[in-house]
């Protein structure tokens, strides 16, 4: 556990630096651009007409989940990395299952912390940058959506751990390919029938499918538009992520404990 605590501390430190730099960059760019106003050319000159819209706060939490999923991707190599050190890891007075579980629990805690930091930074940025006419609202199923978006980065992490648990020094393949594959698969839903239905079914094993979020005329902007036929409710999404986590945890642990040093 101590090793994983060090690893996670290191990752969180770099995340904090990165998000701080990104936040400062966003503030600088937005201060210069004033994006909250739209220029409309009228007959008598140029006038700025403020946009007025409501943003469900859960959308910011969803955005934080996507930021946290980057951390999930980084930490997802945990068991794979351990494969170079099995002689050390497996000669401790703990079972392999307990050892793997402790690693994953520490990583999950780090991912949740990442999401909370990201959420706080996003809210702070919103407060600093948004004009008075943009206001935050609640949305339907807020509590369920919070659960769903808290589970998404964990499910993403669990899937990566499961896919890379047997690999030695090659977790990067999974970490590098899972994003384009998942996003690409999600994008294929936009194809016309019958492909839409076919890829719709295939995408049921794609965690990204379950991040779809709509509230009124606002979507999180990072979701896949699954349309009416593949609409995922917050509750279904949360349950799907729980299923991903449980199945991936079993798959990862089962594979890993059967390796040979």
């Amino acid at each position: 556990m101590y090793k994983e605590l060090l690893r996670v501390r290191h990752a969180l430190m770099w995340f904090a630096i990165s998000i701080a730099v990104a936040a400062v960059g966003i503030v600088i760019i937005n201060t210069a651009a004033h994006p909250a106003h739209v220029s409309v050319v009228l007959d008598h000159g140029t006038t700025k007409i403020p946009k007025t819209f409501a943003v469900p706060w859960v959308m910011w939490f969803a955005l934080a989940a996507w930021v946290a999923s980057i951390m999930s991707t980084i930490l997802g190599s945990t068991l794979s990395q351990e494969n170079e050190h099995l002689a050390l890891a497996w000669t401790k007075p703990r079972s392999r299952t307990a050892y793997a579980t402790s690693l994953m629990l520490i990583d999950c805690a780090a991912i949740l912390i990442t999401q909370l930091i990201a959420f706080a930074v996003i809210i702070a940025l919103f407060k600093v940058l948004s004009p008075a006419n943009v206001h935050v609202t609640g949305g339907p199923d807020d509590a369920l959506n919070v659960v769903r978006f808290a589970l998404f980065p964990l499910a993403w992490y669990a899937v990566i751990v499961a896919l890379s648990a047997r690999l030695r020094n090659r977790a990067g393949i999974v970490q590098g390919l899972i994003w384009p594959i998942a996003l690409g698969l999600g994008g294929l839903i936009a194809l016309p029938a019958p492909w839409r239905q076919i890829f719709g079914v295939i995408n049921f094993v794609n965690p990204i499918l379950y991040t779809s979020y709509h509230s009124g005329n606002v979507s999180s902007g990072v979701v896949i538009d699954t349309g009416d036929t593949l609409a995922i409710s917050a509750g279904v999404g949360a349950l799907a992520f729980i299923a991903f986590i449980v199945v991936s945890w079993f798959a990862a642990t089962y594979q890993w404990r059967r390796l040979e040093a």
């Binding site: 002689a87 000669t91 401790k92 007075p93 703990r94 079972s95 392999r96 307990a98």
Partner: peptide, 9 residues
Amino acid sequence: PELFERIAY
């Protein structure tokens, strides 16, 4: 696993 408390490798 508990026996590794007594074993070094």
